[in-house]
Simulated scan of single mutants.
Amino acid sequence: MADPIPVPVGILRLPRGPDSSGSRGFSCNPRNFQNPHNSQNSQDFHNSQDVQNSRAELRARFLRLLSSARGRPARFSLWNGLELRAEFGAADVHTGAFQVDSLQTPLGIQGSALLRCGDVLEFSFPLE
């Protein structure tokens, strides 16, 4: 009996983390923490209601977009470089997935599928 042919395994390269100076998004300085009880940051604390209102409005817009997108053709770009086309179905916030119909993949067309949000880099609705 012949030995099985080894299957090549791809290498997963993770993004580099922040360096010790904190220049890549993380600060090593604990004084940058915004404490609402600190008089210096009290103005930021009062403006947080404005920030919360803005975020609520953006979330409402996004949810209206998703509800009006049902049945429209969509294009999904995945992190691995694949571009997929499908008919948008729905988005599940709790499990983090997009439900699509007629998913066009390099291997063929799937009647329906779930795309994990973590795999999707971006999605759009092309004007056709």
Rank of each mutant, 00 (worst) to 15 (best):
residue 2 A to Q: 08
residue 2 A to T: 08
residue 3 D to G: 05
residue 3 D to C: 03
residue 4 P to W: 05
residue 6 P to M: 05
residue 6 P to Y: 03
residue 11 I to P: 00
residue 16 R to T: 13
residue 17 G to H: 11
residue 17 G to L: 14
residue 18 P to E: 10
residue 20 S to N: 09
residue 22 G to D: 08
residue 22 G to L: 09
residue 24 R to N: 12
residue 24 R to K: 14
residue 24 R to Y: 12
residue 29 N to C: 09
residue 29 N to H: 10
residue 29 N to I: 04
residue 32 N to I: 07
residue 35 N to W: 03
residue 35 N to P: 00
residue 36 P to A: 02
residue 38 N to M: 03
residue 38 N to C: 06
residue 40 Q to V: 07
residue 44 D to C: 02
residue 45 F to R: 06
residue 45 F to H: 08
residue 46 H to S: 08
residue 53 N to R: 15
residue 54 S to N: 13
residue 55 R to V: 03
residue 56 A to R: 14
residue 56 A to Q: 15
residue 60 A to P: 01
residue 63 L to Q: 14
residue 64 R to Y: 05
residue 68 S to H: 11
residue 68 S to A: 15
residue 74 A to L: 05
residue 77 S to K: 15
residue 77 S to D: 15
residue 82 L to N: 15
residue 83 E to L: 14
residue 83 E to D: 14
residue 85 R to F: 12
residue 86 A to M: 06
residue 87 E to F: 05
residue 87 E to M: 13
residue 88 F to T: 00
residue 89 G to F: 00
residue 89 G to T: 01
residue 90 A to I: 02
residue 91 A to H: 03
residue 92 D to A: 10
residue 94 H to E: 14
residue 95 T to W: 05
residue 97 A to K: 06
residue 98 F to T: 00
residue 99 Q to A: 10
residue 100 V to Y: 00
residue 101 D to N: 12
residue 101 D to F: 09
residue 103 L to V: 03
residue 106 P to T: 09
residue 112 S to M: 10
residue 114 L to G: 00
residue 115 L to G: 00
residue 116 R to W: 02
residue 116 R to D: 11
residue 117 C to K: 01
residue 118 G to I: 01
residue 119 D to R: 02
residue 119 D to M: 02
residue 122 E to N: 13
residue 124 S to V: 02
residue 125 F to W: 13
residue 125 F to D: 03
residue 127 L to W: 06
residue 127 L to S: 15
residue 128 E to D: 14
